[in-house]
Computed example of a mutant assay.
Amino acid sequence: MTFTRRDFIVGSMAAAALPQLAQAQALEKTKLTIAVGGKNLFYYLPLTIAEQLGYFKAEGLDVTIVDFAGGSRALQAVVGGSADVVSGAFEHTINMQFKGQPMRAFVLQGAAPQIVLGVNPKTLPNFKSVADLKGKKIGVTAPGSSTNVLANFVLAKAGLKPSDVSFVGVGAGSGAVAAMRAGQIDAMSNLDPVITLLTRSGDMRIVTDTRNMAEAEKVFGGPMPAGCLYAPQPFLDKHPHTAQALANAMVRANKWIQQAGGGDIIKAVPESYLLGDRAVYIDGFLAAKQAMSVDGSFPAKGAETAFRALASVDDKLAAAKLNLNAVYTNDFVKKANAKYPRG
């Protein structure tokens, strides 16, 4: 039996494809949908990088990302069955355990919330303290989202209840910018690049800034995990290899971001993310970068911090006995870091 050069090449190609084939076969689910609330935000930048640089595909995944107005809407998509995984705020896992629908976070994107609460200098020119927000309209990405949670927390520290203000959903993009500039809201809790755009144009005065790690820990009294991938516990139980593949891609994205400069980010993200101003986008990235996770790991005290923040504005939750170890796991992240020590 003789082998031609063509046989050798075909055989070599088949052999090279075997590892990928084996990987694809090991995945319980290759096609899946991730729901996110405000995909253009730096809060979710690792998700976009994993998508744009092909990290999901490299893991054998065919991922569809569906964007919603805020994190609470993204969560509803998974609860309703139209998405498999949420790219959203960590604290939703605590709320869902309290509601008897266990969700577990399995790879971190943000080491701090990156949420900024600021006031509108047009409608509140004489603003002196958070107490001045009583009776005012506060814009949030969507009611019930992490931007709403931060606003509630800051209000509570000033002796105000959520019912003392009116919350308005303004999204996480140009709509939020327009609402602030038009004076439709008196304050806003939102994220970059929206915040940098408004502060540079003089349309927002910052009150609380959790893009700064030190200020975030001071506000919340400990490490406050932010954006992450989380899913219903049954999904993780049934699809551990798929969850591992997702964690692998996200850890690679986290590590790429840590090495990236402003120019790298501009090339990697869709043009629509820039909100018409590349310089502002780069400034926003540099402001948010320190608050992004280095390796996808959840801090040991993070769940306790998040619980305290939620409990401060919800008496029923505060009285609940929850298993905070069940709302996150670092098991997938440990394996991902072993596979991609340098990204």
Rank of each mutant, 00 (worst) to 15 (best):
A247K: 03
A112T: 07
G80S: 11
A74Q: 04
D7H: 13
V107P: 00
K161D: 10
V170P: 02
P162F: 01
P125T: 08
I206S: 06
V294Y: 11
A178K: 15
A306H: 07
Y281C: 12
G221Q: 07
F127P: 02
L75W: 11
S272I: 07
V149M: 05
T33L: 05
A231S: 08
F298K: 08
R200K: 15
Y44I: 13
K289M: 14
G227K: 04
M180C: 00
Q259W: 07
T64K: 13
T210V: 09
Q259E: 13
I195V: 13
G144E: 10
L198D: 07
G227V: 07
D295S: 14
V86L: 07
K267N: 12
I65N: 03
L197N: 11
F127T: 06
Q97P: 02
G202T: 01
N148V: 05
A131H: 04
A172R: 03
L47V: 06
G144R: 04
M96H: 11
I282G: 04
V119E: 00
R200E: 14
T123W: 02
K29T: 03
E28Q: 13
A214L: 15
F285K: 13
L41W: 15
V149H: 09
I265V: 11
P341A: 00
K134H: 00
A226T: 10
D84N: 09
R252G: 10
K289P: 12
Q52G: 04
T147E: 07
G60K: 09
V194P: 02
P232D: 12
F285E: 09
G118S: 07
A247H: 10
F285W: 10
